[in-house]
Design a protein around this nucleic acid. Sequence first.
DNA 1: ACATTGCTGATCAAATTAATCGAGATAGCT
DNA 2: AGCTATCTCGATTAATTTGATCAGCAATGT
Lengths: 146, 146
Amino acid sequence: MWITKKTDYACRALLVLSIESDALLKLQEIATRAQVPISFLEQIMPQLRGAGLVRSERGPSGGYRLNHAPAEITLDRVVRIFQGPVAPIACATRNAPESCLMEVGCSLQETWQEVRDATIEILERTTFAVLAERAGGRWLAGVGTD
Amino acid sequence: MWITKKTDYACRALLVLSIESDALLKLQEIATRAQVPISFLEQIMPQLRGAGLVRSERGPSGGYRLNHAPAEITLDRVVRIFQGPVAPIACATRNAPESCLMEVGCSLQETWQEVRDATIEILERTTFAVLAERAGGRWLAGVGTD
DNA sequence: ACATTGCTGATCAAATTAATCGAGATAGCT
DNA sequence: AGCTATCTCGATTAATTTGATCAGCAATGT
């Protein structure tokens, strides 16, 4: 239970944008489709923009669109933006892990690292292209061939 | 960063007990060797006892000892005692997952489940026998052959 | 009895999470 | 120029979780 709502919401928003691919979507629209409180999304989207994942346009007829092809955005990337290092515990991060003060060599660390690596592996190979296809494939196809 | 200190401390305490195998260790001793604040451990150990993982004896010459062979205690078990269901997000627990309200089928859920399963697999196959061997093998041998 | 140890529940401070809100900036339209 | 729809940014807040500490009680060996 370590993915925060914020991260979850960000992923959902990106999923919506990935399904619509190049479309320019208003905050309001994203919020509705992703089922995210708009006032919260209001602080999430700028963060995604800051990280370079989306672009925005202001004024009426403004909105958000992806800044990269969905195939180039990994879940891994998004999680790190909002939650920092992916690791189950501070002594098992890939960079600058916190040192363990136990007398006996802490063999737990090794297992936490296994968890970390397995997690990262999955998040790295999961792109929003795959997610969009899985989620909206049918729905998107329906629109395309309409 | 989702393993809490409490869980971490509990694992470390069990690791110390596993290295000493059948010995009866005082709270104080466990606290020192595991580098856990004794006042905190004071509330952790009873929880482990409640879950049946350790036994305790009171009075002078009291202390704690394992209630099972280290090979029969999995990391998975300990994590669940202190943190409940192992899942990165509430919509991906194995029992009674929280339903997702997104319009489009939430394909993220599938990936969170992958993370969950990979994590559980690792935690289930890691026993304290393995951890003790990895941690204290050398040190324990040293004591044994002294 | 008394010293030593575990047991229990209350309490607490700090951090994190999950929002909400209002004022400001920007761009398009008339 | 002025109006309006939209994104932007920062402050604030309530609730929850985390990480501890402590006092007092219970049991037990000497």
